[in-house]
Design a protein around this nucleic acid. Structure first.
Length: 817
RNA sequence: GCCCGGAUGGCGGAAUGGUAGACGCGGCGGCCUCAAAAGCCGCUGUCUGAAAGGGCGUGCGGGUUCGAGUCCCGCUCCGGGCACCA
């Protein structure tokens, strides 16, 4: 059997077998306990890159491990196949989007198969398939019925590069498009929104219970940005019919309010600006509207010329004092009420503004002794605040809100940074929004029988960037489902994040015909036990999916008790090269296919598993190829062991001294590898397997009992099966004619884990001075006696009696002299 | 500015408060071979020493402890997130 290992032949053969034998197919009547391991479904951009390989290798280890553990592991795969690149390719004169996308899917699928990652391909989902479009549209119409989808005019983000509007989540902090890098413009447009804000509280509260990386949870918390405060009105002086509503998180500081500020876009600006101030205010408003978000949001630069007095005054209801009303661009129309009470003493922005415009500063919270600087936003006793004096921040806040409520001028209010999710995209290659506009009946959802609304294929892509749907007569002209008269079809398509917000629910039964989600199947497999993907989706996809899961449950399309889609989330580190992310545009990709053709999938998998902790980023360097060679060398060592190529002269029999030691090492490795897999410690799991391999080699050379060696090799192959599945399967089949991936996961025998002999470390004053091989069962007195008797200790101590001896039997004694 | 994460040999990295550097890469040496490759075996933190041994050593400075890479306080540097959100 000591034959050469033909990587290409063996890997291809096992990949076929796993699929043909349905090793990783699960069904609804599967008697094994269900579990669900999922990697984020990819946008198909061609053959897999190293990031995919890393992702799918991690997922595959878990799928194979849990299968050997006896679970029915749902392991589906799909493609997030709508999206801009396909359409851009068409505009550049390439293939039509469908053909282009399907060609990319075929390429990606091929490399995923060559990686040896196993999926139940019967469940494949592609978001551009008519079936998926149908259910996407059904869901949309149900959301519309439930009031969770609506159309409204709002200031939106327009990306000139992508020729479409974007969700807030798709605009980076510097005001550029996350996809194209263009500076995003603000436009007032009528668009479709999903009411994610209705779930804001639940989305933020439920984060606490999730087994997710803390930083992802923090990012979501920040994004939702819940703040608790109060809203109340400031009556305009001498104009009893007018008042300004303001939102504040610090109603306790209201006695220090020395002016009020309106956002330049605030509707009352026009009314409140006096003729003398008009020119100045209008100039400011004009400049603010022209400025990009980058400039507008920048905290850099002076506040000079960024504010203007309206000429009007409002009355501070707390003390009856009149205060001036300003307009300033640092107040945003989209947050709170678009107007604020300004308290310079306790808010740094207000302080800076006040300093510039010569406005008074009245402290209402006593700063601590020696406090220097402008605004003090910390806690402290209230001053200059009449009936709030002496109270701390929290008590004063509660009392202020109570007073506002009693006066009937305000109440406690919660504000969120989170906005509703804008899903309209002015692009072709996406799921059509299934509504028509009727001159008599207005917005009408397309009738169920007319779904799905599919994309016409006889379209012309224009370099203007305008969606071809807008010029396609056959698509545009529809009939109103209510009156039967002519109507115009919606030409916008959905954000592709809509597609990815529920695919994991569909996977439970992707062929279900009575609705988007098979409720019973979803109950069986969801939530996803292990969700694996990149940190890049920390907000976008992962927040939308949490929202959708809840919304679908609440409108009766999915099990309402499933609130969270992903019980545990694991975010793998990125692969970098020269400090930058590997990407096609940077031209620094190292194609996995090259490795499949040479060293094989197992060696590349091992590299990704072994190179470092899965959460950390890894650098692809010159050393990477050498490490891959090392992984290949390790696989060769295992293969030669398993095929009986080395040693072989099993000299001693059962009683050989090495046998017990080897067996203990095997069980120790079982325990280590199992624990490491559970905590995503794949790098140390592989290291443990390498150690065991080295140990077995030593025992073979030492002539340890062949039966024990053989057992050790079998266990080694079983433990290796999730990591290097092809080689493990091939070797195991050669030895036993059994498919290793159908074997139960080995269990560590606790009695084998108990060691008999151990090394007693002897320290003097905390420094290592001697090591003594001892019986592991020794007690405190015995190890101390041994330690004190040590020659080295005797020499060091001389005549001095130890002042203290600390013993941790059986492994350590520290003598304090 | 605020909030996280990190810093360990030539390199990637291991280490429930208890032998720092597992495992691997690279390097050095040996065996095998006509030779090479492959393979197998061994050495490899640093200084000192012929050796035995000893000194030093986990970004920097303090502290807690019998004992600190690990815990606490104060810094430096790197990476990431948030940042006019009232």
């Amino acid at each position: 059997m000591a034959e050469r290992y033909d990587v290409q032949e063996v890997e291809a053969r096992w990949q076929r077998r796993w699929e043909q034998e349905g090793t990783y197919q699960v069904d609804l009547d599967d008697p094994r306990p269900p579990s669900y391991v999922l990697c984020m479904y990819p946008y198909p951009s061609g053959p897999a890159h190293q990031g995919h390989v890393r992702n799918y290798t991690f997922g595959d280890v878990l799928v194979r491990y849990r299968t050997m553990k006896g679970e029915a592991v749902l392991s589906p795969f799909g493609f997030d196949s709508f999206g801009l690149p396909a359409e851009n390719a068409a505009i550049k004169g390439g293939m039509p989007p469908r053909a282009y996308t399907e060609a990319r899917i075929a390429e990606l699928k091929r490399s995923v198969r060559r990686l040896g990652a196993v999926y139940d391909w019967r469940r494949e989902i592609r978001s551009h398939d008519p079936d998926y479009i149908l259910w996407n549209q059904v869901i949309f119409l149900e959301l519309l019925k439930a009031g969770l989808a609506y159309r409204a005019e709002a200031p939106v983000n327009w990306c000139p590069g992508c020729h479409t509007v974007l969700a807030n989540e798709q605009v980076l902090a510097d005001g550029t498009c996350e996809r194209s890098g263009d500076v995003v413009e603000r436009r007032n447009l009528e668009q479709w929104f999903l009411r994610i804000t209705r779930y804001a509280d639940e989305l933020v509260d439920a984060l606490d219970g999730l087994d997710w990386p803390e930083r992802v949870k923090t990012m979501q918390r920040n994004w939702i940005g819940r703040s608790l405060g109060a809203q109340f009105s400031l009556p305009v002086k001498n104009r009893p019919e007018l008042s300004i509503d303001v939102f504040t998180t610090r109603p306790d500081t209201a006695f220090g309010m020395t002016y009020a500020v309106l956002a330049p876009e605030h509707p009352l600006v026009e009314t409140l600006t006096t003729p003398e101030q008009r020119a100045e205010v209008e100039e400011l408003a004009a400049r603010a509207s022209e400025e990009s978000d980058i400039e507008r949001l920048s905290s850099e630069g002076s506040l000079d010329k960024r504010g203007a007095f309206t000429g009007s005054y409002v009355v501070n209801p707390f003390n009856g004092e009149p205060i001036p009303v300003y307009v300033a661009d640092y107040v945003l129309i989209g947050y709170g009420t678009g107007a604020i009470m300004a308290v310079p003493a306790e808010d740094q922005r207000d302080y800076d503004f006040a300093a510039l415009y010569g406005l008074p500063v009245v402290r209402t919270v006593e700063p601590p002794e020696g406090f220097e600087g402008g605004a003090y936003s910390g806690d402290g006793p209230h001053i200059n605040s009449r009936w709030l004096n002496g109270l701390d921040n929290a008590a004063a806040k509660a009392k202020a809100i109570e007073w506002l409520t009693a006066q009937g001028i305000g109440q406690a209010t919660v504000n969120y940074r989170l906005r509703d999710w804008l899903i309209s995209r002015q692009r072709y290659w996406g799921c059509p929004i299934p509504v028509v506009y009727c001159p008599t009946d207005g917005i009408q959802g397309v009738a169920r029988d007319d779904l799905p609304v599919l994309l016409p294929e006889d379209v012309e892509f224009r370099p203007t960037g305008q969606s071809p749907l807008r010029f396609h007569e056959g698509f545009l002209n529809a009939t109103c489902p209510k009156c039967g008269g002519p109507a115009k079809r919606e030409t916008d398509t959905m954000d592709t994040f809509v597609d990815s917000s529920w695919y994991f629910l569909r996977f439970a039964n992707p062929h279900h015909e009575d609705g988007p989600i098979d409720v019973a199947a979803a109950r069986q497999y969801l939530p996803v036990d292990r969700y694996i993907g990149g940190i890049t989706h920390a907000i976008l996809h992962l927040l939308y999916a949490r929202f959708y899961t809840r919304a679908l449950g609440d409108i009766g399309l999915s099990p309402p008790e499933i609130r969270e889609p992903f019980e545990q989330l694991f975010c793998q580190g990125m692969i970098r090269m020269d400090g930058k992310a590997m990407s096609k545009s940077r031209g620094n990709v190292v194609s996995p296919d090259t490795y499949f053709d040479t060293v094989g999938a197992d060696a590349l998998r091992l590299f990704h598993l072994f190179a470092g902790p899965p959460v950390e980023d890894i650098d692809w360097s010159e050393q990477s190829d050498e490490i891959i060679e090392g992984c290949l060398r390790f696989l060769g060592r295992v293969w030669r062991l398993a095929s009986g190529d080395i040693g072989g002269e099993a000299t001693s029999s059962d009683g050989s001294p090495g046998a017990g030691e080897l067996r203990r090492e095997v069980h120790r490795t079982i325990a280590r590898v199992t624990a490491d897999i559970e905590r995503y410690g794949f790098n140390t799991a592989v290291a443990a397997l390498m150690e065991l391999t080295n140990t077995v080699y030593r025992h073979v050379h030492a002539g340890t009992d062949g039966t024990i060696v053989s057992e050790a090799i079998d266990t080694l192959l079983e433990l290796l099966a999730p990591f290097a599945p092809h080689l493990a399967a091939e070797a195991y089949e050669h030895r036993h004619g059994i498919h290793v991936h159908t074997r139960p996961w080995p269990e560590a025998d606790p009695s084998e884990l108990a060691v008999e002999r151990t090394t007693l470390v002897v320290q003097v004053n905390g420094k290592l001075r001697d090591r003594i091989e001892v019986d592991a069962g020794l007690g405190e007195d015995e190890v101390i006696a041994l330690a004190l008797a040590s020659d080295k200790v005797q020499q060091l101590l001389g005549d001095v009696a130890p002042r203290r001896v600390v013993a941790r039997p059986p492994s350590l004694v520290n003598i304090v002299a």
